[in-house]
Design a protein around this nucleic acid. Structure first.
Lengths: 340, 340
DNA sequence: GTGAAAGCGCTAACAC
DNA sequence: GTGTTAGCGCTTTCAC
């Protein structure tokens, strides 16, 4: 049998309430008894039963995190940041990792509700429809969405300024003298990808460049294979690009593989910039990538959740996060005369 | 207010017990009432409160998973597999990710105990001393260790047959005609690394080869940087190797970077095999790697936990898992006359 | 077939 | 300063 509060009380010859006062450090307890109770707690290694606390207080002190399994590591990074931030506020995180398109949503949402989580963070969960989120809201469970968000009342959002991120990346290429710049991204079904594509187009527009249609490779999803296909197309373009901006490091993996096979070098033969700043550091060569401040994202997510727990009716807010460019020198300097 | 069992009972005009019988599908309930109760449950979207269930049954239906944050993705894979296996048995997983050497252990163990997890899976947690594991055992919480294990009574283990894995990798190189084969691993503080090194040595011994001391690069830890340093040493060896076996894909990242910088190609100039089969598929070129069957590991971990929950006194057992060689053709065929 | 009731371990309002 | 007590939502034994 595990030791419980009443055991402590009995051993110390006091009531449950007094033990409770010592544990929560509130109310008056004589110094003498306090010492004695603390001694017994330490000695017996008593740890309060969170389940009982949860039942009593209608707070589980557990936060749910719905995320995707993904070969890229950004979700792992966010998950880690969320865990750390939650722990600081005395919460634990129940992470449910969904495999895209698996139809596990209902079960997962029910599991979270069943455990009476105090809030839910949804990270880049493309597959999760508003209906499921509604199930949480009905029950007054605060929800924060990260990166791929819906504009729903009562749902707070953390929005990465992807337009600025991709614009900065493409501008970096422009400053280095590139004018034939290609884009590799996923289908424009989601806001993130729309923004990243818009950033690309805007930066070019500022420079007075109209990109060839062939230079925009919009792939069905994020994968190494998609990266391979994209670069294959680009290398066969009527006018081939001198630089390629990709909306995910996972595309970069495929791109680098094809270049490697053909004996083309980065940045000598082609300049590259990726996105997420996760895998990019591990590749050959390590590539410049747009990075996200993961800890900041985790902190904000928890903060928004806590805010809404205190005041469930507060109107939804949207926190903007600025990405940064992690330069690993994979954009080559080009001379004027070389440009198109 | 969330809806609860008594609400269902009231709406159906029956007692709590009858609703309970319907929910758990045991005991006799008239078909009529059953239908009515089921209808109301569906209509109201009632979801049982796991916290109350947990308190009553002294079972949280939560399993703890202690793991490491790591740029390699093996833990993410294992985590995913554990989640899936747990879900199949009606459990959820509370994953606590530790950053090596951070001293978070006590807090994390206490959190798990506080939540009264029904069992704990410990994955490759080099930093976790037996003392902390003892805290769990004292409380009769079943523990399964994966990969880096201690030989403790009542602790079940999942042991990867790393000796066989690395032996197979090195034999593969030998079959292809290599005789100058180098080893890049982490310090031999842990059994995994000892086994992997032993497999390397045994395979060479079988072939009657005595490796140069310089060919064994035992690095302080797993990192890209360590991979870079190791290959640097190997390229400057008195007699340079034609093939390199690495105990982690993360080393391969660094190795490939250095080779790339020097214009050396894989497998033309150097043959490579990695370990874990995670990052290896993403690199340029994708490299042959020793892979672990992650789902199997997750399944076994959960199975062992469930077994011990039923029968806490059962003697500790150790499940062996065989790795496999994922061939991506990064070991070049060598002619006889080229060998040493 | 169905219901009443005790109690899981803890919290907090209230009484002394 | 300290103790008593009424639940939190559910399970399950026992009685009818």
């Amino acid at each position: 049998m595990t030791i419980k509060m009443s055991d402590i009380a009995k051993a110390a010859g006091v009531s449950l309430a007094t033990v409770g006062r010592v544990l929560h450090n509130n109310g008056y307890v004589s110094e003498e008894k306090r010492q004695e109770i603390e001694r017994i707690i330490k000695e017996t290694g008593y740890i309060p039963n969170r389940i009982a606390q949860g039942l009593k207080k209608s707070r589980s002190k557990i936060i749910g995190h719905l995320t995707l399994f993904n070969p890229n590591m950004q979700y792992q990074e966010i998950s880690s940041a969320v865990n750390a931030a939650a722990a600081e506020s005395g919460y634990q995180v129940l992470t449910l990792t969904c495999h895209q398109g698996s139809g596990e949503e209902e079960q997962q949402i029910n599991d979270l509700i069943g455990h009476r989580v105090d809030g839910v963070i949804i990270t880049s969960y493309q597959a999760l429809s508003q209906e499921w989120i509604g199930r949480l809201l009905e029950r007054q469970i605060p929800v924060v969405m990260v990166e791929r968000t819906y504009d729903m009342p009562l749902v707070d959002r953390i929005v990465v300024n992807d337009l600025a991120g991709s614009k900065e990346a493409v501008r970096h290429m422009l400053h280095k003298g590139h004018r034939r710049i290609a884009f590799v991204g996923a289908a424009l079904d989601y806001q993130v990808e729309k923004d990243r594509y818009a950033g690309y187009l805007e930066a070019l527009k500022e420079a007075g460049i109209v990109p060839l249609e062939q230079w925009s490779q919009l792939m069905p999803g994020y994968s190494v294979e998609a990266g391979r296909k994209a670069i294959d197309e680009l290398l066969h373009a009527r006018v081939s690009p001198t630089a390629v901006f990709m909306t995910s490091d996972i595309f970069a993996c495929g791109v680098l593989q094809v270049l490697y096979e053909r004996g083309l070098r980065v940045p000598d033969d082609l300049s590259l910039i990726g996105y997420d700043n996760t895998l990019s550091a591990l590749l050959s060569p390590p590539i410049t990538s747009v990075g996200l401040p993961f800890e900041k994202i985790g902190d904000h997510a928890i903060r928004l959740l806590l805010r809404r727990m205190e005041d469930p009716g507060v109107s939804a807010c949207s926190v903007g996060i600025d990405p940064f460019l992690m330069d690993r020198h994979t954009v080559r300097e080009r001379q004027e005369e070389q440009s198109l």
